[in-house]
């Protein structure tokens, strides 16, 4: 077990190495210059040359790359070209918001998605099943940012006359103060971000329960006269969980990095937006650092998923 974990965690090294190397050279290939962006619209060429030299960006790509990698392996992610701030500080500043949003969206989609999936499986081919499947399909068929805007319109929008357009209960955007205020601010982004996961998990739960139900031991249990619900909860659900956990793992990784649109719509201070903004300014150290953290999270979640597999089904051995 420990050996497995160590091996898995070590496997993150080549991936991160690959991603950072690729990003480093792609940022080089993209036409444009971070120093030029820093100067604003009118940049004096002499000033530009001077800043480029100060940042060491006048050296050949390969030299810069070696310097960068040496620093990274000694644990220094560098400073942003643009603001001069430490990359670690920039990322750590956004980390809590990112995790909060991703975890809440995940909990929402798991709880609601699995409940709906079980319900649909139990009522297979009935109206409820049909309704849930259509709803979950709509969940995965709607652009997230569009859903976010619609949610704002329904739950937060105040009309021209000062009264709520529909409900107007929740704050439109922002991070809020810790406590209840934070939860109120979190509600809409979490709901809109959870929609896709909810849809996938509901569908996956339904089909894997149906699959398990058709197997012999379940048929035996049914033949013994056990009530359907008991069969579902005691026997089928546990075995149906494995594919669901896989989906959860994949989805969670997507939630961490892919929340840019949601973060933009709701002005949520997450890490995805910082990465995209830094890409646009060609602020390489921030992009690299951000992607490194994402890749790390991605692998960690996969390890977690593997451990979950084992917890669910003791027959699974990690090797």
């Amino acid at each position: 077990m420990t050996a497995y974990l160590i091996r898995r965690l070590l496997s993150v090294v080549p991936t991160i190495f690959g991603v950072t190397t690729l990003i480093f050279f792609i940022l080089f290939l993209i036409p444009g210059d971070p120093v030029r962006v820093m100067l604003g619209q009118h940049g004096d060429p002499e000033t530009r040359r001077r800043i480029t030299q100060e940042l060491g960006l006048d050296k050949p790509a390969s030299v810069q790359y070696c310097m960068y990698m040496t620093r990274v392996f000694s644990g220094d992610l560098g400073t942003s070209y643009r603001s001069g701030e430490k990359v670690v500080d920039i990322l750590m500043d956004r980390m809590p918001a990112t995790i909060l949003l991703a975890v809440s969206a995940m909990i929402l989609s798991v709880v609601l998605g699995m409940t709906a999936g079980i319900l649909a499986a139990v009522r297979q081919n009935q109206f409820m099943d049909f309704l849930i499947m259509i709803l979950s399909l709509i969940g995965i068929s709607t652009p997230v940012f569009w859903l976010g805007l619609v949610l704002i319109l329904i739950f937060a929008s105040i009309g021209f006359d000062g009264s709520a357009i529909i409900f107007g209960w929740l704050p439109v955007s922002g991070y809020g103060d810790p406590g209840w205020d934070r939860i109120r601010h979190l509600a809409l982004p979490a709901i809109s971000l959870s929609a896709i996961g909810m849809g996938y998990i509901a569908r996956m739960t339904r089909s894997s329960i149906l699959e398990v139900i058709r197997q012999d031991y379940i048929r035996t249990a049914a033949a013994k006269g056990l009530p359907t619900r008991l069969i579902v909860f005691r026997h089928a659900l546990r075995n149906a969980l494995i594919p669901v956990v896989t989906v959860i793992g994949m989805n969670f990784a997507a939630l961490l990095g892919g929340a840019v649109a949601t973060e933009t719509v709701f002005a949520w201070p997450g890490i995805g937006k910082v990465i995209v903004d830094s890409i646009r300014q060609l602020d390489a150290p921030v992009v690299e650092g951000g992607v490194m953290i994402m890749a790390l999270a991605f692998i960690l979640i996969n390890v977690l998923v593997d451990i979950l597999y084992m917890a669910i089904d003791p027959r699974i051995r990690l090797n």
């Binding site: 991936t15 690959g18 792609i26 990095g257 992009v287 994402m294």
Partner: peptide
């Protein structure tokens, strides 16, 4: 497999910006 892992961890926005710019 390594390439696939890299692709999963690679930010899509960077890919889009890079391809369209290059």
């Amino acid at each position: 497999t390594w390439l696939m892992d890299t692709a999963f961890a690679f930010p899509a926005a960077l890919l889009a910006i890079a391809v369209m710019a290059i």
